[in-house]
Amino acid sequence: MDWRKSAQVVLLLLPGLGLILAMIGSVLYIAVAQSFGYYNLTGESGFSVEFWESMLDRKIYNRSWRYSLYIGFFSAIISVALAYPLAIWLRRPFAGSDVIGALLKAPLLVHGLVAAFLFINVVSYNGIFNQFMQGIGLWDGPRRLQNDQNGFGVLILQVWKQMPFALLIMIGSVQAISDDVLDAARDLGAGAFTRFRRIIAPLSLSAMQAALVIIFMGAVADFSFQVIAGPTNRQSLAQLMVFFKENGQWNDAAVVGVTLMVLALLCAGLLALTARIIVYGRIR
């Protein structure tokens, strides 16, 4: 390719890719620079590791990244684990499968904030869930379920919202596996679990990895579910970042922001790699 053609390609790509790169690049640059003391909006600007040092010593920060990882990891794993059998079940059409598929994907159309408010209403002290449990005689009185300390409410909301997305990604991949290949495995003596482990999982690994990574990245940076339904005694990284920002501590907010980006990237990669190692038993 001569320089004219190369220039033509670059020019054609520039409006789309250029804008994306410029926006990502500028955000990354500002966040990293601010976390090291530059662009200080309230004091002197200049290179400093003091914000990192002080942040790494803070209990709230360490609890926050551990909590975000916990939410991200379990949201991704549970969503994919639930989506897999559904994708296999809906692999071939049957009477009613379209309706079931549409119902399963319905949460994609409901905004997260709306879902969180509905959830809070359902599990509130005098909500229908408490009433139901008392009605069937399992509980003597109402229990406090709202904003539980383990973040189960956030996990439920994340899975409710993300599982249809995982299903959407994986169903195509599972549908692409030919019946003959699965029948051949069966004919050679493979039971249902072996067929899943040795045929379906490896052949849909890319979709599984994509679902894990995308869900993990979304959940690890969750703000809205956490603010409405999350525990009151711990904060997610996104929540902590907003807290610092609202208190005018921009450099501290940047440290949390960079942590969030690095954790999301590294752990998503690790998650994808682990999935591959588990499925294939080796990296290849």
Binding site: D180, V181, D183, A184, D187, I199, P202, L203
Partner: peptide
């Protein structure tokens, strides 16, 4: 043991 028309080899 069945030999399939499509061969049905495991592609991975």
């Amino acid at each position: 043991a069945l030999c399939f028309q499509s061969y049905a080899l495991f592609p991975h």
